[in-house]
């Protein structure tokens, strides 16, 4: 007898295989993706990501969405190989929906964290072979604790709580230091910032990452390309529209770069 609540197990029983072992061909550059961040602000958690996907020195795509809404209260931001990351997101999205619909209750936040951890663990062979490493950030609203939370992972599936913030991707070393500095010696800690100030902070951080990391895409005003920024609060996930990002970027970010 089982509770019949595990969609991933159901997929496996039907012959689905995730994290197939493969060796990256010599000289073959895989598509990867780049700077993501999350931090706690006054009303919840902000999650942001740039839009660039690269393969070696080549820019593959400048409109990638790396901040993926998994359900009404959870977001996974992805760094690493998009093919694997998108597959993980699809499994998680269906797993959470399947649990809610079969068990007639939401999967707990802890259960959601474990689900991602299991996928990363199953993906270890592909990650080590160089064909599918993903280093995500998972953020969501924990109704048991009544707080929005941030977790980050290593490629083996270990989860760590980002008490104030978390970063991942090739541009993350640049902004990790900035986040520490702002949070410790800034006029106010990140967690006290209102939404607009937090948004400006996220835009500045991603612009800084793009300045020093070629694999991170900056803002392209001519093409109207802005980072993806989402907010998680008790009422759910909300995306900041480009129409609101544009004036903020022009007033508070562009004059400094």
């Amino acid at each position: 007898m089982s509770l019949q609540s595990d969609f991933y197990q159901l997929l496996k029983e039907q012959g689905y295989v995730f994290g197939v072992l493969g060796q990256a061909a010599r000289g073959q550059e895989l598509t990867t993706a780049t700077t993501i961040l999350a931090f706690k602000y006054r009303d919840g958690v902000l999650v942001a990501g740039d839009r660039r996907a690269t393969a070696g020195n080549m820019v593959m795509y400048d409109r990638t969405d790396k901040v993926l809404e998994i359900d009404r209260h959870s977001v996974m931001a992805i760094a690493g190989v998009p093919a694997t990351a998108y597959e993980m997101a699809r499994i998680l999205e269906h797993s959470f929906k399947y649990f809610r619909r079969t068990q007639l209750q939401e999967l707990s936040f802890e259960g959601k964290l474990r689900a991602l951890s299991k996928l990363l663990k199953d993906n270890v062979p592909a990650a080590l072979a160089g064909t599918g490493a993903v280093v995500p950030i998972f953020a969501g609203y924990d109704f048991e604790q009544e707080a929005a939370k941030i977790y980050f992972y290593d490629i083996l599936g270990a989860e760590f709580e980002g008490v104030d913030y978390a970063v991942s991707g090739s541009g993350s070393p640049t902004i990790r230091g900035i986040l520490h500095y702002v949070n410790t010696w800034g006029e106010q800690p990140l967690s006290a910032m209102p939404e607009e100030q937090a948004t400006v902070q996220a835009l500045r951080l991603l612009t800084s990452a793009a300045e020093f990391d070629s694999a991170t895409g900056g803002v392209n005003r001519e093409a109207g390309l802005y980072p993806v920024i989402k907010f998680i609060t008790a009422s759910g996930v909300r995306t900041m529209p480009d129409a609101q990002l544009k004036p903020l970027f022009e007033a508070k970010v562009s004059r400094h770069v």
Partner: peptide, 10 residues
């Protein structure tokens, strides 16, 4: 129904 719908949707 749930099983059919979710496997197909995935």
């Amino acid at each position: 129904l749930l099983e059919m719908a979710h496997v197909e949707g995935f």
